[in-house]
């Protein structure tokens, strides 16, 4: 076994490289595309050698898109801002509501607690299109249509169940004795929640928050139907690049790069935090 370890390591390296290339290549290609004009992108055969241009990024940032058919106003930066605002606010709200709820579900088996928890999860079962029509009706009656508030509310359908169920699991993993010990030491239940349960479930809460953020960021349907142009996130905003004079691949690519960047940065940051949290962990230790 020991003498094969070099060979084994080499094989493992090759396998890993293949997997990485397979998954990373599309992202890499999009990244390249974002620095090309539509002409070079559509050239056959495609080439990695090209003169990079920042015109796509410039168009996105200035909001002026010049095509063969003329110039067009696009609100990409506003869309990006909307995405950030909607996702951050939704996740924050979902955490504020969901984490205490998860704690309650984990620690107190009250009558019907399982039913309520399941009902909340079931919101994730229904395809969004199913609820969309009645939802649109209600929102118009309530005057929530085309408001940030309304969108954030709807986004709770995505974020809240996710956070509730993931965080609940983490709370359940904390030995009840650890919390009892803190109570018996003379601290209130709220202090116990703050000083013991929250820090110990921290990695789980971070993971749930991150997932919820990604789901919220990637949402398309709710925003498409319930929001008008000035409140749309990037997922919907990218539609603007499908113009009457053709599809603007270069701008789409740079839009993707810009819109992926925040989630990617967040994921990388949170990953470090998660690993730290988990290795400090031994929640059951």
């Amino acid at each position: 076994m020991e003498n094969t370890s070099t060979l084994e390591r080499t094989l493992r390296l090759i396998a890993l490289t293949l997997v990485v290339v397979f998954f990373m290549f599309p992202i890499f290609w999009i990244f390249l595309m974002s620095f090309q004009t539509n002409e070079t992108i559509l050239a056959i055969p495609p080439s990695i050698v090209f003169t990079p241009t920042l015109s796509n990024y410039a168009a996105l940032i200035t909001g002026k898109l010049t095509t063969a058919a003329g110039s067009l106003d696009i609100a990409f930066m506003r869309n990006l801002g909307n995405s950030i605002f909607l996702s951050v606010t939704s996740v924050a709200l979902a955490l504020v509501l969901g984490v205490p709820a998860a704690y309650a579900f984990a620690r107190h088996k009250f009558k019907g607690s399982e039913d309520i928890a399941f009902t909340l999860l079931s919101f994730r079962f229904a395809p969004p299109l199913l609820v969309l029509l009645p939802l649109t009706q209600y929102f118009q009656w309530l005057g929530l249509s085309d408001t940030y508030f309304g969108l954030i509310w709807v986004y709770q359908l995505i974020c809240l169940p996710l956070i509730l169920w993931i965080v609940r699991g983490y709370f359940e993993d904390i030995s009840a004795d650890v919390e009892y010990a803190y109570r018996i030491a003379g601290h209130t239940w709220f202090a116990t929640f703050r000083k013991i349960a929250l820090p110990l479930a921290g990695p789980g809460i971070a993971a749930a928050g991150l997932l919820a953020f990604i789901f919220a960021w990637n949402n398309f349907v709710f925003a498409l139907v319930l929001a008008s142009a000035d409140k749309q996130p990037v997922t919907v905003g990218a539609l603007a690049f499908v113009t009457s004079s053709g599809i603007q691949y270069g701008q789409i690519a740079s839009a993707i790069v810009l819109s992926v960047a925040p989630t990617l940065a967040l994921a990388l940051y949170a990953q470090r935090y998660l690993v730290e949290g988990l290795s400090l962990g031994a929640v059951k230790g």
Binding site: D177, V178, A181, I184, G186, G285
Partner: peptide, 29 residues
């Protein structure tokens, strides 16, 4: 309530607070 009964308790699985130092664990009461 538990926090006002003035009891000291030791647990079978120790139930130490994993994110606190031994000092902070002992100091908690």
């Amino acid at each position: 309530d538990a926090e006002h009964r003035g009891i000291g308790m030791a647990f079978q699985n120790f139930a130490l607070f994993p994110h606190m130092s031994a000092f902070d664990n002992i100091a908690s009461p």
